[in-house]
Nucleic acid binder design. Structure first.
Lengths: 224, 224
DNA sequence: CGCATCTTGTAAAAGAGTTGTAAAAACTGG
DNA sequence: CCAGTTTTTACAACTCTTTTACAAGATGCG
């Protein structure tokens, strides 16, 4: 589960944001001042940090600087009151990723939280593709111009292997070892049979392949 | 009991709304101008605020801004006269959650009040669903077009797991670990047996499932 | 170039493995 | 011990994989 750290000295707002994000399935971690906020940012490794700009003790700017100074790249959203003049450049310089002006609607804050989290490396949906084909590794779905194409497990494994090794000559033995594993010993013609099916499903013209190429006496080569 | 703050300079309308909401079991708090409205919003912590857009002194827009500026996320319904041009975007920007055009029927206003209150953190009933099925997590009740369908604990747990992980391939082992826990080790066919029962109870045609799909040699996938 | 030989393409059959499902067996809390 | 629930079992039905067989294509050498 993803944790969101909220640093704000306004008890009311802090709790409200906490409830808000918990309702969306995040864990909320609350800090009332900058010092403990920075501590928690370092110790609890949250997925996202929301901090007020005006804080007693350490200011929001200082909080950002210290967190970034500790080598922590967690996205930070800065809250600023409507009157406070905020310098977008300064915010970016100190390492903030986004800012929200109070008063804000709950929907706006959530939208920004989700947008930032979506952009994080680990949370990106892993998608491979070539031409008009998309392979969504998380959903295990292959689409051709948004139309789903079904693949059996062996076909799907072979396809992702090709996609992960583009532009390289791949012998049938190599493919068998990588896709089927060392435990099973099917005849090398099995690979051919599956390549045929990949071509039928994915090539614009299966009779003259542009992506799944034959290297005579060598094996196959995938070209994106 | 939930309190509703009504800010309106029209004595007649203000009282009418007050009576209306009290008849529904809310406590009504009335303010005749923006200044006292904002004060009460901050002091009395109402569950919902209804404010007219055109007010003497502080306008409805200002009222919203000040309330949000104080870090108060209480839902706000804005009332506007039929001629007044209202900018929905502006309303959302200033932190209003909904607006009602005068003249309005009492039923309409009440419906919107209840809709907003339902969405609030503490009051929210957690409901998942797909097609004509609704799963009320708080009440642990599943309904198909308002007709209750009974589920045994294991079935129910499996169902909610599917609902919380839509569109993703779920292996039998993953399902067993998540739904049954690491402590118990039933055979993976147990999952199949329960899926059969989910399909029998929830699929329009259990013989050709549209929601609880089999991924041959992989596991299952739930599609809402 | 032409022919023999080897490699690859491919549909279809055979084989292996997986899933659906009803029913029996085991379990559980009263 | 009972009723309800869960798990296992058994077998039919089905899907996927592999093999096979033959056609088509590529290669190489005289």
């Amino acid at each position: 589960m993803q944790t969101i750290l909220v640093i704000d000295d306004d008890d009311n707002l802090r709790d409200t944001i906490g409830v808000l994000v918990e309702r969306e399935g995040f864990r909320a971690l609350l800090a009332a001042d900058g010092i403990s906020g920075v501590d928690q940012a370092i110790l609890a490794k949250p997925s996202l940090i929301i901090t007020d700009l005006r804080l007693p003790g350490l200011s929001g700017v200082e909080v950002c600087k210290r967190i970034r100074g500790a080598g922590i790249l967690t996205p930070i959203i800065v809250l600023s009151a409507i009157g406070e003049e905020i310098d977008k450049v300064l915010l970016l310089e100190i390492g903030a990723d986004d800012y929200v002006v109070k008063p804000f609607g709950s929907r706006e804050l959530l939208a920004r939280i989700k947008a930032l989290l979506r952009r994080q490396p680990g949370n990106q949906q892993k998608v491979l593709g070539f031409a008009d084909i998309e392979v969504n590794l998380d959903r295990r779905i292959v689409t051709k111009r948004d139309q789903e194409i079904r693949f059996t497990p062996a076909e799907y494994n072979l396809l992702t292997f090709f996609l992960q090794n583009p532009d390289r000559p791949l012998s049938r033995d190599m493919i068998l070892n990588s896709v089927w594993g060392y435990e099973s010993f099917p005849n090398t013609r099995t690979v051919d049979a599956h390549v045929v099916r990949l071509r039928q499903k994915l090539e614009p013209d299966p009779n003259s392949p542009r992506h799944f190429l034959t290297l005579h006496k060598v094996g196959y080569r995938f070209l994106p």
